[in-house]
Design a protein around this nucleic acid. Structure first.
Length: 491
RNA sequence: GUGCCUGUAGCUUAGUGGUAAAGCCCCGGGUUGUGGUUCCGGUGAUGCGGGUUCGAUUCCCGUCAGGCACCCCA
């Protein structure tokens, strides 16, 4: 018995590491005998078989009968989650470019990086962004823990929290912070909208509630988008006034809309969040709004002056903006300036932001003026792709190392190290042993030069440098290789 | 949360109530050391679950995922 079990084990364990070779060599037509990989399960099922001394045929029959879960069914439930996506190597150049430009903008406009945790207390957003906002009301991912924790749906509240928690009000004011981070919102995916997505953001907290900071945030955001080669950008800007102004305006608006013919949904907003009716896409609502009172008429003198000053700064900078009195933001903490930046042909904002003078106080800090913006990075990539913008650097010269024979293969890793130390970028396909296959791959990778070390070269301590375009090649001693390569790569 | 559309190989697409085709990609080969062209061969799929049926990839239902729009938003 013991012997038999031992044999059975030995057999399967022998099989499993070699699966690839026999599968290829034999290439059986039926897929069933090909999947002995799950050795534990198989052992269990064959155990009884080996006890009864089943002949080989019978064993294979039994294996056939055993239900094999299909690969697809194994994948079931393991696919990426709705609205959440992988960022694949081919798209990484876009992301690297964005990281670079965000860092660059942050450097020049003097923002310091802050990273806050992905998980925060739900209360942070409920209090900060406002319980009437849809983001907080419906779109937060709650963790199944005893304390009410959520995946952050936005980052401004987190930054404000960190500002308070780390006593940043004691640093020279204002404090300028930026981030580049993933956010999570539970909503229906569609063009430019995901459940997990990334935002880059800039925040200026503290100091005076000076309109020049509003302009600076808009400037930074706008210039960043420009540096990503986006064109046809436009800024829509509005003011919500002070909370007091807004309360007055709210009453005026409700009075105006009260007696109008409105759909149920719109009518419901009259009680909860009437300003939201302003950015309705419904044509009939838009028609009605044409004669609605404007927020501008409800502004106090100082609010009005603030807005005017922001616009003057933008004029001075030559930034293209349009005033849109129907622009209302989704988060309750905004006051005074709000803005969105669009690219023509897309009906979603690439970036948005505004002033949130009340937020820090609302979260338990001292009264702190603040203004900030956030940029939707997946949206940026989407627009860049649509515009045919491509950051792949295809002109970079590429060297490809090829080996033939055992000795050369043994030496190849050390050779790669030599190249790396000389700062020469080199690709390889070390597991392929045929010269042909390696050259083929070098070609597919778009390599310019191939370094070929065959048996002879490995023995003689030399390497062939082959120009893959011209086909011209030259044998050089290894100690002259770096020098030669630099020469080749220059010309 | 609501509505519409779509799920066939890694990708792009055929097709059928009765053995699921092709192109590209990938892997191997065209005699032992030279790629891009070409030739030959190979791996690999009906999203998942249920129902109707002798039999479903096809018809029906559910579900999951993708797309689009509403809502909302970066």
């Amino acid at each position: 018995m013991a012997k038999k079990d031992g044999k059975a084990k030995a057999k399967t364990s022998k099989k499993s590491p070699n699966i690839k070779k026999p599968a290829k060599a034999v290439s059986p037509k039926k897929p069933t005998p090909k999947a002995p990989a799950k050795s534990k399960k198989d052992l269990a099922s064959t155990k009884s078989a080996s006890r009864i001394k089943m002949p080989h045929k019978a064993v294979s029959e039994a294996l056939k009968v055993a239900p094999q879960p299909s690969k697809k069914s194994l994948r079931q439930g393991l696919e990426s989650v709705k609205g959440m996506h992988d960022i694949l190597p081919k798209d990484q150049p876009y992301w690297e470019k964005m990281r670079d430009e965000v860092r660059c903008a942050a450097y020049f406009y003097n923002f310091s990086r802050i990273d806050t945790p992905i998980v925060e207390h739900a209360a942070l957003f409920e209090r900060g962004a406002g319980e009437t906002s849809e983001i907080v009301e419906k779109q937060m991912y709650f963790l199944k823990t005893e304390d009410k924790l959520v995946l952050r749906p936005e980052n401004t509240a987190s930054v404000a929290r960190a500002y308070i928690e780390h006593g940043m009000s004691h640093e020279p004011q204002p404090v300028r912070l930026y981030y580049f981070a993933p956010m999570f919102r539970y909503e229906q995916p569609q063009e430019g909208r995901f459940r997990s997505f990334h935002q880059a953001g800039f925040e200026i907290l503290g100091g005076e509630s000076d309109p020049i900071y509003d302009a600076e945030i808009i400037l930074t955001t706008f210039r960043l988008l420009e540096s990503l080669k986006l064109s046809n950008l436009s800024i829509e800007i509005n003011t919500l006034g002070s909370p007091f102004d807004r309360a007055i305006y709210r009453r005026k608006l409700v009075d105006f809309l009260k007696n109008k013919k409105l759909s149920k949904e719109v009518h419901a907003k009259l009680d909860t969040n009437p300003l939201r009716i302003l950015d309705s896409k419904d044509e009939s609502v838009k028609e009605i709004l044409k004669t609605a009172p404007s927020i501008l008429d409800s502004l106090s003198a100082s609010s009005s002056a603030h807005f005017k000053a922001v616009l003057e700064y933008l004029d001075t900078l030559g930034l293209p903006y349009t005033i849109s009195n129907n622009l209302v933001r989704g988060l309750d903490y905004y006051s005074h300036t709000v803005f969105e930046i669009f690219s023509s042909d897309f009906n979603f904002a690439l970036a948005a932001g505004g002033r949130y003078d009340g937020l820090v106080e609302l979260l338990g800090g001292r009264k702190t003026p603040a203004v900030g913006s956030a940029i939707g990075l997946e949206r940026i990539v989407h627009v860049m792709k649509a515009a045919g913008i491509d950051f792949n650097n295809k002109n970079k010269p590429k060297v490809f190392l090829i080996h033939v024979g055992d000795l050369a293969k043994k030496k190849s890793l050390a050779l790669l190290e030599t190249l790396k130390n000389a700062n020469i970028y080199c690709k390889e396909a070390l597991s392929k042993d045929s010269l042909k296959a390696q050259l083929k791959q070098a070609d597919k990778e778009g390599s310019h030069l191939a370094l070929i070390m065959g048996q002879k070269e490995a023995f003689e301590e030399s390497v062939i440098i082959r120009d893959l375009e011209s086909g011209i090649q030259e044998t050089v001693p290894i100690d002259k290789l770096i020098e030669k390569l630099h020469h080749f790569l220059k010309s």
